[in-house]
Amino acid sequence: MFEQFELRHIPPLLLASIWTVGGLMSFTHGPEEAILTYGLSKKIASSQAAWPLIKIEGSRITTIGLAIWGIYLGGHLEAMDTLLACIGWMAVIDGVVCAKDGAAGSARMRASYQGVVALWGWFGMTSGKYI
């Protein structure tokens, strides 16, 4: 059942909202801008061969955002923390890919913010498990 709102729920709900809407960027602002915003190089962003891939990636990010909201609204806060902890894998992969093919600073930015999200989940901050 849905649990009472607490301030510690704000960060993952903000992330869920950003990802739900942000995943649509390749459709609303175009795939080239979405690729640049992701942090990849201009060379990759201007390659039309990459455009379908950012649309696919965007759909997955929107799906994760919707899943976070669904899990929250269902009152499954420990499951929400588990999903957030799994985002650590995205931090590793995004960091590696952006370090190789991204714009300057994109690897550090991606790995850092997704790493914080993963640690938030790992330490059970949404559910209050370890607080």
Rank of each mutant, 00 (worst) to 15 (best):
M1P: 13
E3L: 07
E3T: 12
Q4P: 00
E6Y: 00
E6S: 09
R8V: 00
R8H: 07
H9W: 07
I10T: 12
I10Q: 02
I10S: 07
P11I: 08
P12W: 10
L14V: 15
S17W: 00
I18G: 07
W19P: 00
W19T: 13
S26K: 04
F27W: 03
F27E: 05
F27V: 00
H29L: 14
P31W: 01
P31K: 02
P31D: 00
E32S: 05
E33K: 01
E33H: 01
E33D: 06
A34D: 02
I35A: 02
I35Y: 03
L36H: 04
T37F: 08
G39R: 05
L40N: 02
S41M: 04
K42D: 08
K42G: 01
I44V: 14
S46H: 05
Q48D: 02
Q48V: 04
Q48E: 10
A50E: 10
P52G: 09
L53A: 12
L53P: 00
I54D: 01
I56E: 14
I56W: 10
E57H: 06
E57L: 09
E57W: 01
E57A: 09
E57M: 05
G58V: 05
G58F: 09
I61W: 09
T62F: 03
T62P: 08
T63N: 05
I64A: 07
G65Y: 02
L66K: 01
A67S: 08
I68W: 01
G70D: 14
I71N: 05
I71S: 04
G75N: 11
H76G: 04
H76N: 13
H76Y: 12
L77G: 06
E78M: 07
A79G: 11
A79P: 00
M80W: 02
L83Y: 02
A85C: 03
C86N: 10
I87L: 15
G88Y: 09
W89K: 04
W89H: 07
M90R: 07
A91N: 03
V92P: 03
V92H: 01
V92E: 06
D94E: 11
D94K: 08
D94R: 08
G95P: 03
V96A: 10
A99Y: 08
A99N: 07
K100L: 13
G102Y: 09
A103T: 14
G105F: 15
G105V: 12
G105N: 15
A107Q: 14
A107K: 07
R108A: 12
M109I: 13
R110G: 03
R110H: 10
A111K: 04
S112H: 04
Y113D: 12
Q114M: 15
Q114G: 09
Q114P: 01
Q114N: 15
A118T: 14
L119Q: 09
L119H: 07
W120A: 09
W122V: 14
W122D: 01
M125W: 15
S127A: 15
G128T: 15
G128N: 12
Y130K: 11
Y130R: 12
I131A: 13
